[in-house]
Structure formats: structure tokens, C-alpha cells
Design a protein around this nucleic acid. Structure first.
Lengths: 195, 195
DNA sequence: GTCTATATGTTGATAGAC
DNA sequence: GTCTATCAACATATAGAC
């Protein structure tokens, strides 16, 4: 607040937006602080004024993605109704959130667990997946899913399908709603035409 | 040939197996030649006797994965019969090959295109995806798939599901056949129980 | 086919001026 | 909040002996 420079003047948050873009372009390990400084238009040492280091930038970015995903599980339609309907809601919303927070979720999905921060992110992801797997199990127990579906395996393939959106989605090409709808339709009804 | 040392004595191929394991554990960018030399039990400079450098190791590894995938498209069941059956064959076999060549395909799927080698790998992957997309289009044109399925989008989600196997599959837990069967079933028939 | 030693560049991070 | 200057550590790769 109370600034008068014509532009720039980063906060941790605006710097994060630039950072995440570069991390996604070059990979976290493939991105140097020099790369970040060039992309942000400030010197390397200026970055250290905003954050403690490169790993903190990663933590802030994936934390944002994780918070957005966990918020889905608190939505009314995710906690009330038939398990299969709650599952459908979570699947649709996960696809939507992935698109709304595309760069942050993309980065999250590429984390492999080599540092403490990455391990923490993986742990939270596993927790999210586990809670959705419980929903799949509940729907299966109610007879709302095909009886030969293995809940654990189905959950993994389901997330595989959803998460792969990050590999190709670019804003403008399709709406988040349209993609989410296609995911729900394919996941619940499959590709094959009715006999 | 004509060696008498009690063990080791690398060829480019056996060195590659070690290398790919480390690349997958630490990431390509996160792996140093020092890491590779420690994992292989030989010095850094010995590695340069077998390959020109780090990038050549990547090229050899992803090349192996790509060759295995393209071979699927030449199989008799992939070139003869109804499009929907050919598609089902390719989907099943892609899942199986992914598991058979797990470390190599895993590495391929993580490539992002920052070097010439990675760009070349992405290009071949796109070509493979494109050829499967043609199969989806053909099946849709024959009325063998749901009419509201967009071929291009469906192909992407399909590969998302298949490729995600690399994220969690570990030998011994399940058979390749079982996983491939689940993929085919989920992709073609969906999760939902019959009404 | 392997080694030790080394050249040469890049990395993440800090010190301290403005 | 930004900068220039600098550091110690680590990177890929090469030279040349055995």
C-alpha cells in the first residue's frame, strides 16, 4: 500500500504467479533462480526479500492447489445425498478446480517427493485421494456402481483421467464446465454405444 | 565378450537400466552424473565411455518406450476388424506395454520438451496419440461409440487414464492383465451400475 | 573399461549499499 | 524493495594413466 512507482513492486503473491508459470515451463529442478529473476524482471537477490528460497516458492504454489482441492470435500453436495451423487459432484468439481487453478494444480501433479516440501505435498494428495476412495467404496456398497469395480483401482484410474487434463488444457479452447461434463460422462457411462 | 572379471562390466544397455531407475526416482533434471555413477558403482568418466552424455541416456530410454508403443499399432488385431474392437485392443495393449516396460514408459511420460531430445520424444508421443484418435473417430463414425463423445477429448482422457498407471503400479501387486482389463472395462462401460 | 584429476560453467544463497 | 558483487558447492564433461 501507499506506493507510487508506475508498475512492478512485487508481493509474494504476484511473484508466485510468475514463478509457477516458469516452474511449469522448465520443471522445478530445471528452473534456476536466475531463470526466475529474468522472468520476473528483478534480480535474484530481490526474490530472497520475498521468500526464503526456491523451495518456499514451491510450497506456496502447491499449498494453494491443495487448499482448493480440499475445499471441494467441504461443499454441501459433497457431504449430503447418495454416495454416487456425492462422488459425481466431487469428480466434476475436481476437474473444474483443476482448470480454475491450472498452473498451481499442474505443478502439484508433477511433484515427486525428493524434498521435504514435495513429500508433504504428496502426503496431502494421498489424503485427498483416500477420501475420494472412501466415497467410491460407499457408492459401491450401496450398489450404485458396477459390482465388479474395484474401488481402489477405480479411484486411481478416475484421478488419472481427471489429472491428465493438466497435460493439455489451455484456457480459451474449451470451457471448464464442458470438460468436467465430459469427464463425468466418460467416467460414469463409458465410451461404448448402447447395444 | 571374452571377459573374466567376476561381475559388473557394463554395456550401454545394462547401464541404461540403472540410469532409468535413478531418473525415475530423482527426476531427469534432478539426477547428476555423480548420482548415476554412485548408483552404477563406476566413476563418472566411465559412464562417458558408454554414452556421449546424460541426454543420450534419456534418448535411449525414451526411444525404447516409444518403439514398444508403436509396435502395438502394427499388431494384427490393431489393423483388422471393427474400429471399436481395434480400439479396445490398442487400449488393452497400451496398458500392458506400459506395465511391461514400466520404467522406460514412466520416464517417457514425464518428459516435458526442454531439450532437443525431449522435443523429439514429445513429437513421437503426439504421433502415437494421433493415430489412436483416428481409431476413436472411425469407431464413432461407425456408431460404435456414444454419439455425444468428442473423439479428440475422449482420446485424451483415455490416455490420461492409461498413462496414470505409471504413477502407482508396482510389480507384484497386480497382474498387467488385470489392470489392463479394468482399464478397458472402465473406459468402455463406465462406473455406474445398470439401472 | 575403468580410474584420478581437473577444467569450466552454473547453482542457490548471502552481504551490504542505495 | 531493489540492486551489484561475491561465495562455496556442485554441475557436465574431458585428459590421460593403467
Amino acid at each position: 500500500m501507499a506506493e507510487n512507482s508506475t508498475r512492478t513492486a512485487y508481493t509474494a503473491d504476484t511473484l508466485l504467479a510468475v514463478t509457477v508459470r516458469v516452474f511449469n515451463e522448465r520443471g522445478y529442478d530445471g528452473t534456476s533462480m536466475e531463470d526466475l529473476s529474468r522472468a520476473a524482471g528483478i534480480s535474484k537477490s530481490s526474490i530472497y526479500h520475498h521468500v526464503r528460497g526456491k523451495e518456499e516458492l514451491l510450497r506456496l504454489a502447491v499449498g494453494r492447489a491443495l487448499d482448493a482441492l480440499f475445499a471441494i470435500l467441504e461443499e454441501p453436495a459433497a457431504v449430503t445425498g447418495r454416495p454416487v451423487d456425492r462422488l459425481e459432484h466431487v469428480v466434476r468439481r475436481t476437474a473444474e478446480v483443476l482448470i480454475d487453478e491450472l498452473p498451481y494444480v499442474t505443478l502439484l501433479l508433477r511433484v515427486r517427493g525428493n524434498t521435504a516440501t514435495e513429500e508433504w505435498a504428496l502426503e496431502r494428495r494421498r489424503d485427498f485421494d483416500h477420501r475420494v476412495a472412501e466415497l467410491v467404496k460407499a457408492a459401491a456398497a450401496e450398489g450404485e456402481l458396477r459390482p465388479d469395480v474395484e474401488p481402489r483401482l477405480a479411484t486411481r484410474l478416475l484421478f488419472g483421467m481427471i489429472n491428465s487434463i493438466a497435460e493439455w488444457y489451455r484456457p480459451g479452447s474449451r470451457t471448464a464446465d464442458g470438460v468436467a461434463e465430459a469427464v463425468v460422462h466418460l467416467a460414469f457411462d463409458g465410451l461404448r454405444a448402447e447395444p
